[in-house]
Simulated scan of single mutants.
Amino acid sequence: MDLSDILAAIGIVLLALGGGTFWSFSTGVMPGLGRTDDQTFVSSMRSINRAVVNPLFLLPIFLPPLPLVWAGLIDLDGPRGWLLVAAGVVFFCGAVIVTVGGNVPLNTALEQSSSSPSASRVAFERRWNVLNGVRSVSSVASIVLAVLALAV
C-alpha cells in the first residue's frame, strides 16, 4: 500500500461520512422537522446549527477534497488519478462551496433573525433544503467517482 492508496482511503472514508450527513439531512432530518410547527422548526434548526460546530462534524464536511486530490495527483498518469481528482473537485464545488456560500449564511441568518418563527422558516427552509440537495447529489457523485477510481 503506497501513499496514494492511504490518501484515497482516508478521502473516501471522509467523503462517505460527509456525504452521509448531507443525505441523512435530506432524507430524514429535514422531512421530520418539516412536519413540525414553525417555532419547533426554528428552535430545532438553531440548536442543530450550534451543535454541528465541532471537529467531528466539520472535518468530514470540509476535508475530503484534500486527500482525494492529493492521491489523484500522485497517480495522475492514469484514469485512477483523474477519477480521484474529479471526486475531490466535485465534492469541493458541490459540497464545500455550497456549504460556505449557501447553507452557512442561511444558518447565520436564521440564528440572527428577529422575525416571527413563520417568517424565519419561510426565509430559510426551502432554500436550505435545495442547497442541501445539491450537497447530497454532489456527494453521491463524488463517492461514485472515488469508488470507480478503486476499480481501475
Rank of each mutant, 00 (worst) to 15 (best):
D2Y: 04
D2K: 07
L3N: 07
I6V: 14
L7M: 09
L7C: 07
A9K: 00
A9P: 00
I10K: 08
V13S: 04
L14S: 13
L14Q: 08
A16I: 06
L17H: 05
G19E: 03
G20N: 08
G20T: 02
S26I: 03
V29G: 08
V29N: 09
L33G: 01
R35E: 13
T40M: 08
V42T: 05
S43I: 06
S47D: 11
I48E: 02
L56V: 12
L56N: 11
F57T: 14
L58P: 03
L59E: 02
P60Y: 01
I61W: 01
F62R: 10
P65L: 11
L66F: 15
L73M: 14
L73Q: 05
I74P: 03
L76S: 12
D77I: 10
D77E: 14
P79E: 12
P79C: 00
R80M: 08
R80P: 06
G81R: 07
W82Q: 08
V85L: 12
A86H: 07
A86D: 01
G88N: 06
V89H: 03
F91T: 00
F91L: 02
C93N: 04
C93L: 15
A95Y: 00
V96K: 03
V96N: 01
V100F: 14
G102S: 07
L106H: 01
L106N: 03
N107D: 03
S113R: 15
S114C: 07
S115F: 12
S116K: 15
S116Y: 11
S118I: 10
A119S: 15
S120Q: 09
A123L: 07
F124Q: 08
F124L: 01
R127V: 11
N129L: 13
V130A: 13
L131H: 07
L131C: 11
N132F: 01
R135H: 01
V137D: 03
S139M: 05
L145P: 01
L145R: 00
L145A: 06
V147Q: 00
L150A: 12
A151Q: 10
V152I: 11
